[in-house]
Write a protein that binds this DNA or RNA. Structure first.
Length: 273
DNA sequence: ATTCTCACCTGTTAGC
DNA sequence: TGCTAACAGGTGAGAA
């Protein structure tokens, strides 16, 4: 569910709400979470100093020098609530704070999400490419040159470029006029430059709109993202293309539902321009 | 080495 | 109405 703009929005919300909050209690720990992270209880007494993001990982820096790492995967949520608010059956972890009247609740219907504690010198559990917000044409073009994989598969590969997911890949490719199945190595430098601009613009707008909520995604204060209404192709099968008036179609590619405009995103067998 | 498919888990929706 | 199958914002392991 959450991609870079959603995760960034959550991180900003956490930063504003619970920076410098000391964790008093760790409760309602779902057994599956404790199995994956046996040291989870040891964050009791520690301090949330600040929050950051790398790709789709939320990183909570702790006073002890450790980091609490959260990945929301498909259906995870990290929401700050009033201490007295009732829990849901999918709330799998609750942190309460020493002074404030709030609690931090991790909810995850599908249980794909990850909560992990990193010691001071531990690396992130995944190797990540450059941030999608920061990648430049040289970097992306060099990646593209090396592979004939569909460009969509390349953009979804977090080890190559970090932060994009299914929504923003489809939106970026549409804005750049590139077919999702276009072999990466057949994309020109000029097209790559346009794609980089598209990625940056889409992500900037999505962050400004607090991300995209269809269903489960929520910001740290529980609010929904407003970017869904600005999507051009994602979830818009049968709709009109904003660039040419053509019909948006949906296909399956890289194992994912893929939305595009066949009229302005054409496959080419050779490198053009 | 690279790339693809499936599995993970629960809920919702489309189709019969 | 009720059942079943397919699908959902992600990614890791194992197979090809």
């Amino acid at each position: 569910m959450p991609e870079l703009p959603e995760v960034e929005t959550v991180v900003r919300g956490l930063r504003a709400a619970i920076s410098n909050h000391r964790i008093a209690h760790v409760t309602h720990i779902a057994p599956y979470l404790l199995e994956r992270e046996p040291k989870l209880r040891s964050i009791a007494g520690d301090l949330f100093t600040d929050f950051s993001r790398r790709g789709k990982f939320i990183i909570a820096n702790l006073g002890s020098g450790r980091r609490l790492l959260v990945h929301l995967r498909m259906s995870g949520r990290l929401v700050v609530k009033n201490k007295r608010e009732r829990l849901d059956k999918h709330d799998h972890l609750v942190l309460t704070f020493a002074k404030a009247n709030e609690k931090l609740v991790f909810r995850d219907v599908r249980k794909f999400g990850i909560v992990q504690l990193l010691e001071q010198n531990d690396l992130l559990p995944a190797e990540l490419g450059p941030e999608a917000t920061e990648i430049n044409t040289d970097q992306l073009f060099a990646l593209f040159q090396k592979s004939m994989r569909p460009v969509k598969a390349m953009l979804l590969d977090q080890t190559k470029i970090a932060g994009l997911g299914n929504i923003y890949v489809d939106e970026s490719l549409h804005r750049a006029g590139i077919h999702p199945a276009q072999p990466a190595a057949l994309i020109s430098r000029e097209q790559t430059a346009k794609l980089v601009r598209s990625i940056h613009q889409i992500l900037r707008m999505a962050i400004k709109n607090m991300g995209t909520t269809f269903d489960s995604y929520r910001a740290a204060d529980g609010s929904t993202g407003q970017f869904a209404r600005l999507l051009r192709v994602y979830n818009n099968e049968g709709g009109r293309c904003g660039r040419c008036g053509g019909e948006i179609v949906k296909m399956r590619l890289a194992g994912r539902g893929t939305h595009y405009c066949p009229n302005c995103q054409k496959l080419t067998r050779v490198k053009v321009r």
